[in-house]
Design a protein around this nucleic acid. Sequence first.
DNA 1: TTGTAGGCGTTATCAA
DNA 2: TTGATAACGCCTACAA
Lengths: 340, 340
Amino acid sequence: MKNNNVTIHDISKALEIDSSTVSRALNNSPRVSQKTKDKIISKANELGYQRNSLASKLRTNKTHSIGVIVPRISRHFFSSAIAGIEETAYDAGYDVIICQSLDDYEREKKLMNTMLSNRVDGVLISISMKTTEHDHFKEYQKQGLPILFFDRPCALANSTNVIIDDFKIGKEVTEHLIEQGCKDIVHFSGPQTSQLYQQRTKGFKAALEKHQLPFREEYVFESSLMKEDGIEMAKKILALPKVDGVVSSNDTSAISAMQHLKENGIRIPQDIAFVGFSNEPVSAVFEPSLTTVKQPDFEMGKIAASLLFEQIKSEGNLRINQTKILEPELIIRNSSRKKS
Amino acid sequence: MKNNNVTIHDISKALEIDSSTVSRALNNSPRVSQKTKDKIISKANELGYQRNSLASKLRTNKTHSIGVIVPRISRHFFSSAIAGIEETAYDAGYDVIICQSLDDYEREKKLMNTMLSNRVDGVLISISMKTTEHDHFKEYQKQGLPILFFDRPCALANSTNVIIDDFKIGKEVTEHLIEQGCKDIVHFSGPQTSQLYQQRTKGFKAALEKHQLPFREEYVFESSLMKEDGIEMAKKILALPKVDGVVSSNDTSAISAMQHLKENGIRIPQDIAFVGFSNEPVSAVFEPSLTTVKQPDFEMGKIAASLLFEQIKSEGNLRINQTKILEPELIIRNSSRKKS
DNA sequence: TTGTAGGCGTTATCAA
DNA sequence: TTGATAACGCCTACAA
């Protein structure tokens, strides 16, 4: 079975019209008469013509596609953000290429390379937890291509970020627990190589200070915040003298920790109150339902994509070092309601 | 900021070595001496050379990339299947382009078109619930490109499918409820335009027949099985004279229905027992935990991808009309345990 | 409104 | 082992 790809030249021969005219007709150029356009289009359909985007992209040096790299597409936050990105891209006539880094630095580097060599017009990325070097982004910027970081900010100079204020909200959720009467609060922190988790942890600390509560290193657990980490951290909690609250940097680990604690006779929120982060669907359904932070996911995707398209259209005259901060929302549920 | 893309010609000029040799060196051809290879590679790094994949794909007519189209990447089953696909593709040196049809026929058509015009070497697809016409797949096959359907089979002649036996498992879950003593069982069915849901429904029917229970049309609700549909169906259940069990074709609608019923004082499983489909993470966490069917998601992705690569490598000499059937697993949890 | 000609960056074929 | 040349399919000055 041979590749019987039909090209504009086949249409050109069949109709005895020059291929340049065929090209123009298929691109709906105003410089072709309606009559020939009709002829060409119907012949194209008849022959089963399919444009070769590779050739046209090579020729025009415009791919009309953007790349999206996220840690994992299975996370609710990311799949919602992608939905926002796709909607915006669709309206702008762009294709979206989705990839996941699986929070792996090497993989992220390889993906950036693939993006580059496929000449996408721009990249939206939420960087991996393990990324501490930024050379692969610099290389990219050198080519004059716009790159925009969302959710997880990048310390790189001259970069555009769309994020939430993780310090502020980290402080806010901690204060919420303090208001509920918690005094001995454990913090599930993510890798401190990531700015995002650093900020949440700083917010946690700031809230304690503000309310004259002691900050104790042994009450801060750093992990990758996966399901298994939650169980480990629950065990550590049971080994601590006194704990009445937990501020977790994500829902996944909070829920597996709560599950383990419940199995060990701990009542939530009476004995230990919990707050999470991300508003994963499971957090509304778990019992007790988990107090959490809803980040503007879909909206963040839309805004990030719009900014990227602006930069693409400006062709480098707009490479502003800007940071857009969106407002998250604290959703109070049963896991943190100590006072009725 | 200009596009200062470095090409093999730039390296060629700088080194006064012909571009064809440069190309060979960069592809690690054995027909270039190690000495010149080293020179070329170090110059390439120095200049920040990035291969233009578009040009190379155009020239070789091989893209080393495959397309994946799924209804929604946020569904646990699909993101796991994609993980399996990516792992296999990575080993085979292929790029994966992920897209979601959002269960929309027009969008699916457009995506197939994009795949075609970007000349992917093959496509893995789980078709949209609303897809009843298959012309866009035929067109694709005409080009001699392999396409493989997974999870949701396609009735198209000469197509390869990787699926589970939905009839058999549909029958099995129903019999599980019957064994628990259920007699008046409601069925949440998906769109009957989809073979997959047809089969599950047939399995449901077969189980009733086998156990001499009546099949009643008014006990079968057809919907898109979204969250909202679950609530609607719960209301319908409350309006029926007698219901003691529900076989749902997915977890999402089962859970929202259970939630609504619980709010109305129905006890699960004592009053109504439930079984779902898909093993979404939330099903293990909901109370009562939901009995469900775990499809081999990751494994299905791996197998589907391997089969696709076989077809790609065979270059059309292997277009066998084959169907691979994988074994699902019934996970019994609390929502269906009537007998202690 | 249509045709001519050249090139996007790479690779394959042939010759040296 | 290396070089010269043409071609992949498309688009776009420029000319007619």
